[in-house]
Design a protein around this nucleic acid. Structure first.
Length: 595
RNA sequence: GCGCCCUUAGCUCAGUUGGAUAGAGCAACAGCCUUCUAAGCUGUGGGUCGGUGGUUCGAAUCCACCAGGGCGCGCCA
């Protein structure tokens, strides 16, 4: 199949022409030659920096090379003008025919238009959410969930073989605390006379998860097992008796809730991995053994952090991973004082497991509060990858503040003003939550304005984009009523030379840049670019629509001009299709009509 | 104290991995529309890209230092 990315096509033309002007061009220099869309339509449709890039090696002025290049490029079919501009750019003014010729390409490829090949079917593992199974999901988890899911979709569209994965953190102390908290709800359910405070004193470390969401866990345990896990007086029995079953029941029910929430959010996974299973099968020990063989593990003492000491600091020798050999600032501990593994140790084993399952690129989507872990995890992956190409990218998601009625909604578990994901979904809806979460770079803080997310105005990008799609569909429905075949195959054969209005050409140009955008966004691991593209595309379409209000000859369906109508219907169909495939990457529903 | 992230128009934010005269929405200002393609339209003004140096053909983008905001800093995940 021919490349449907016209920027690739022209980059090849540029390189070919350049080879005649500057023979023996070094590879690395050629790689820096770009063909990009212009910001300003006065600069034509595309520009190349070729002359600037090679001028030093060629020992000729950029203007000189640019002039020669422009001359050769101007001779190409479909290039109306090629001219040198600025410090040595060559601007290409394409023939409208070339741009119009993209419409049949789009319509034939349909939703596959924009698919890229840069992924080369490389195995990518995208790990996201991985919320602790100790309670319901809240807004903090939501951003990572949406960003991870959209990023995975984007990479798949760019030609990677993607696995979406969730790690269940079911091995650490927090799960022990969960079991104790669930056990309290169990005692309550069977009618204990203990008070919460009395109970808390019996819990190692105190009772932690006091939310009401554990009540059903206690009730189920009571219903299934009666009083057998408590003492005769309905007091705290020995943990050996109840701990296992309570933990398992609580974990299972928490994960059911989390999966329901993810489902409501439209976030899906190919695989759920259990940290506990990994530990039980000895993966952590095996990984530590491997690192030991590599000479990367030693017993040592860490320097205390500079500045004020933590209250409970005491020097201690511990098992350390030589992270400094791979770019980290300090070596990192793998064992706690009680001999169990640190989370970091288990996470190394987990990443080793992902590599063993074939992942060449791993991408972890983390909350910003895990930022301090980035360099150590990357160090560990570098150590384990050895000479293989495997590597780890980490996408950090900054915190989300929620605004309602112009006020910041304070979130505090203690104050009970803690917004769960489910609350947000009920109030705002899945599409608006997902799209809005993608209207910022993930590493920038975000204010999520609930009022704006549900508003039906241009300020709300979700609405604006969906409305553009609905308008397209409305035109297409009307076209069908007039007996027009709106299938892609039929419209792909329609003559389009009647499309020549500036607003129409702007829209076509935007559509033609979709494949390039997919590629760039995937390389940058930035799904938010899709959302911004759709907003701009919607703007182009609304602009064209509005032109039709002032000037009736610009309306899409013209009763007395069947051929012009068909061309415009093709343009509308292509617009709807690109919006739909962009929304598919974001996991947002394309609405058919808005009433 | 150290490390990482951030700082772009009055406000909220983009900026195609170093490209041309830094863009969009809101707000402001000025017109238009009272429609049949509902949830308005068109245009205008608005900038020391936090600051100062540096790298080079070229810097919002890369480097150094400084200021302000956020996150983190051995047995939490």
């Amino acid at each position: 199949m021919t490349d449907h990315n016209i920027f690739h096509l022209f980059r090849n033309y540029v390189l070919a022409a350049l080879a005649e002007i500057v023979p023996d061009l070094p590879e690395d220099l050629a790689a820096r030659v770009e063909v990009t869309p212009t910001k300003d339509e006065a600069h034509g449709d595309m520009a190349t920096n070729a002359a600037l890039v090679v001028s030093k090696v060629a020992r000729r002025k950029p203007q000189e090379i640019g002039a020669a290049l422009a001359e050769k490029l101007a001779a190409l079919d479909f290039v109306e003008r090629a001219e040198i501009a600025g410090p040595g750019f060559v601007n290409l003014h394409l023939s409208p025919d070339l741009l119009r010729a993209q419409l049949p390409v789009m319509l034939r490829r349909a939703e596959n238009y924009g698919d890229a090949t840069i992924g080369q079917n490389i195995n990518v593992n995208v790990e996201y959410v991985s919320a602790n199974p100790t309670g319901p999901m809240h807004i903090g988890h939501c951003r990572g969930a949406v960003v991870g899911d959209a990023l995975a979709n984007l990479l798949a569209k760019a030609g990677f073989a993607v696995t979406k994965e969730y790690l269940i953190n079911d091995a650490g102390g927090q799960v022990t605390a969960l079991a104790w908290a669930a056990y309290w709800r169990y005692l309550e359910a069977i009618g204990t006379s203990l008070t919460e405070e009395e109970y808390s004193e019996e819990v190692p470390g105190g009772l932690q998860y006091r939310g009401e969401y554990l009540i059903p866990v206690g009730q189920r345990l009571a219903a299934e097992h009666g009083g057998r896990y408590a003492t005769e007086t309905k007091g705290v029995a020995a943990p050996e008796i109840w701990f296992e079953i309570v933990r398992e029941t609580a974990l299972e029910m928490m994960m059911v809730g989390i999966r329901e929430d993810l489902d409501l959010l439209g976030v899906t996974f190919d695989r759920f991995s259990s940290e506990r299973e990994l530990v039980l099968k000895g993966a952590t020990d095996a990984t530590i053994d491997k690192l030991t063989e590599m000479g990367l593990i030693y017993q040592g003492m860490l320097e205390p952090p500079k500045g004020k000491l933590p209250d409970d600091w005491e020097p201690r020798e511990q098992m350390l991973f030589r992270a400094t050999a791979f770019g980290d600032d300090v070596d990192r501990p793998l064992r706690k004082s009680d001999g169990s593994n640190t989370y970091f140790a288990n996470d190394i084993a987990y990443h080793a497991d992902k590599m063993a399952r074939g992942a060449e690129i791993m991408i972890d989507v983390w909350g910003a509060d895990h930022g301090g872990y980035v360099s150590r995890m990357q160090a560990a992956v570098k150590a384990l990858a050895g000479n293989s190409k495997a590597h780890l990218d980490i996408v950090l998601c900054q915190i989300v503040k929620v605004l309602k009625g112009g006020e910041l909604v304070r979130m505090s578990k203690r104050a009970g003003t803690f917004i769960t994901l489910r609350d947000l979904l009920e109030e705002v809806g899945r599409d608006a939550v997902r799209f809005t979460m993608l209207t910022r770079k993930s590493d920038a803080q975000m204010d999520f304005d609930i009022d704006q997310a549900i508003a039906q105005t241009r300020e709300n990008p979700v609405f604006y984009v969906q409305y553009a799609h609905a308008r397209c569909r409305s035109v297409l429905r009307a076209a069908v009523e007039q007996g027009i075949d709106i299938s892609g195959e039929a419209l792909a054969d329609v003559p389009t030379s009647s499309l020549e209005n500036a607003a129409e050409m702007t829209l076509i140009r935007r559509l033609a840049s979709w494949p390039r955008l997919v590629e760039q966004a995937a390389l940058a691991r930035e799904p938010h670019r899709i959302a911004f593209f759709l907003y701009e595309l919607a703007g182009d379409f609304h602009m064209l629509w509005n032109r039709g209000r002032e000037d009736a000859t610009l309306r899409f369906l013209q009763a007395d001009q069947p051929e012009a109508t068909l061309a415009r219907v093709a343009l509308v169909a292509a617009t709807a299709m690109v919006i739909r495939s962009g929304l598919a990457v974001l996991g947002v529903t394309p609405v058919e009509e808005m009433r």
